Amino acid sequence: MSDTMLAGRLDLRSGAFAVEEIPVPRPGPGQVRVKVEASGICLSDVHLIDGSLKPVHTQADKITLGHETAGVVDALGPGVPPEWTVGRRVLLQAGERCGTCRSCERFTAPCLRLLTRGVDYDGGWAEYALAGHHTLVALPDDLPFEQAAIIPDAVSTPWSAITLTGRARPARPAGVWGAGGLGAHAVQLLRLVGAAPVIAVDPLEAARRRALDFGADLALDPADPGLRARILAATDGHGLDLALDTAGVPAVREQAVGCLAADGRLVLVGLGPGPLTIGNSIAFSVRHQQILGHYGSEPGHVDELVTLARLGRLDLGRSISGTLPLAEAAAGVERLRKKEGDPVRLVLTP
């Protein structure tokens, strides 16, 4: 085994991204080293590289990107529980508790300084990655690495937004703005929990067709002047019980709020730096509507999704739009930025 490896590194001072040779990391106490087999490219990675998204909790000058990672345990640090053995197939949670804030010290509440893999510490765009043993999730042999890798974030974030933050209910209408990496899975997951009808909104015709393939009952163009009327007609005049913004775009949020039912909820799933405004705040208040922020998922959500995929309730095979070698990470980022081929998820395979 070589002492060095390839890694996709972002210079946080200059904003430059490059695949470089760096030392292979050694696991410390409670850590394992994972030989990476697959790591997803997310729109958040694009935003980190273009500078519109900034890491909050790191003092490092450079960071290895990649928060969607699956592979095989390669080496063990001291103090790792015996269930994690060399050769075991695993995926890595997309983040972890900081371990130092007041909530972590008392274990009484969610972490106040949640750390994200590939943002606040080195991630999976590398030949090897380190992970605390508590962030490992065992993989069944029949779940391909490429599909498993995207579960943390691309699938678990909308799953958490739907089941926890958004409180989706069976036979209640739900809408998804954006049918890309997060939104396409949101459509499939809303159908899984019984939301009905499920309505997808996306400006790209190919994305709308994909949403229908993934289980949407209706797919609409946001530029359609009759969009709100069509949503009202599809929901017996009530509007949406739940709307998900997976695009992180201010115009999307304003349009989605206008399609909510009384007591309806808009969940902000996609990250975006734009301002959040409400055109008619009186109507918003009178109708008891809500806008809810959302970020990531809880550890248990990843375990749930692995089980659903293992038992055939969730098909992730259609989600892998292409694979690229790690050395071509920059090309993959550019493909996603330009939406070449309208990808759901592109995956790096070191």
Rank of each mutant, 00 (worst) to 15 (best):
256 A>M: 15
296 G>D: 04
11 D>I: 04
342 D>H: 06
7 A>D: 03
31 Q>Y: 10
152 P>I: 14
299 P>F: 13
76 L>M: 01
301 H>V: 00
272 G>W: 10
331 A>N: 03
321 S>G: 12
7 A>R: 02
318 R>G: 07
43 L>G: 12
9 R>Y: 03
106 R>E: 04
41 I>C: 08
6 L>P: 00
83 E>K: 08
232 L>W: 10
211 A>V: 01
114 L>K: 00
76 L>T: 03
308 L>Q: 14
347 V>M: 11
219 A>W: 06
88 R>T: 10
103 S>F: 05
318 R>Q: 07
252 V>M: 08
265 R>N: 05
133 H>E: 01
79 G>W: 05
306 V>E: 04
89 R>W: 07
25 P>M: 06
94 A>T: 09
277 T>A: 14
230 R>N: 09
90 V>Q: 11
208 R>S: 09
190 L>G: 04
88 R>H: 05
230 R>S: 09
277 T>C: 02
280 N>T: 01
193 V>R: 02
151 I>Y: 08
164 L>C: 13
300 G>E: 09
147 Q>N: 12
215 G>M: 13
112 L>R: 09
329 A>H: 04
128 Y>Q: 04
284 F>D: 11
182 L>W: 03
62 K>H: 08
13 R>G: 08
55 P>E: 08
172 R>V: 11
225 P>K: 00
64 T>V: 14
168 A>S: 15
274 G>D: 14
206 A>G: 06
79 G>H: 05
347 V>T: 05
66 G>V: 14
230 R>G: 04
192 L>P: 00
131 A>H: 01
59 Q>C: 06
224 D>N: 14
33 R>W: 00
267 V>P: 13
